[in-house]
Design a binder for these strands. Sequence first.
DNA 1: CGCATTTGACCGGC
DNA 2: GCCGGTCAAATGCG
Length: 273
Amino acid sequence: MKEIARGQSLVTQLRAIVLPALQADQRCELVAQMFQNILDCSSKAITELQLQHQSDARPDDTLLVDDKKRVRRISYDDCIKEEGATANPHHQHKRRRSDDSVSIETPVPHYDGRQWRKYGQKHINKAKHSRSYYRCTYRQEQDCKATKTVQQQDESAGTDNHVMYTVVYHGQHTCKDNNGVDSGTDESETNTLNSSDSRSSISTTCTDPCDHQTSLGHNNLIEKSADLVTKSMYEPSYMNPFAPLDLDSWELDALLRFHLEPDNNEGINEKLV
DNA sequence: CGCATTTGACCGGC
DNA sequence: GCCGGTCAAATGCG
């Protein structure tokens, strides 16, 4: 599980580097979708391993309770889904599908090739950092149900380095290209090539003063190289729908610090359980 | 001025 | 009654 999670983290970082560098065409969308599929695969693998691990470690009664909860939740959500199909504007609260949520760990929680709009922030009980709630920017226009939550992990309490976030995605994107043809793809249909239209001037959501303290770096060398890469990556002469339009550089800054500091990778290797 | 974000209220499951 | 997820009025910002 540790190694899969590390692979996920690396994929998200690679995605943050590759996507902005691509030309805006179908290949670009394909690459984005493939990144997403890879992350989905590893997330599902981790989920399976966790279930396996729990059933191995825990006594039977605890397991039964967990399974009951899980089953009940799924069946409840199925009812809600049916209800939603009949266009009921009420009961939109608390819909959550435990079977289609995908969780990843990454130092770059915001740049994932999609456009998100923040709709809430909540302090979570035992966590140091609050959790942010995002939904797809095109929820109103296209009724896209995709949401995600972002929460900074606690373990890196002492230093500002190695900041990792847990990002949980819920639901499938049903939003499409502005000039696309197909409309309501249902959420039961997964892994189709959903194109994302993020070409407009809507800003990429990345402002979150509680969780993200920007430009804390005191290493001049790192900051300079961060500037360099920021300029080359974030001021493209072409229009790439996956390029962060006015994204702050803090995320890339963190990414660079992540890889430029020599002891980081070892620390990550040793840290996770 | 029209947006996106913030933030406390509210809601429903457990 | 607590807790996490969502709503929506207030606020901020370009």
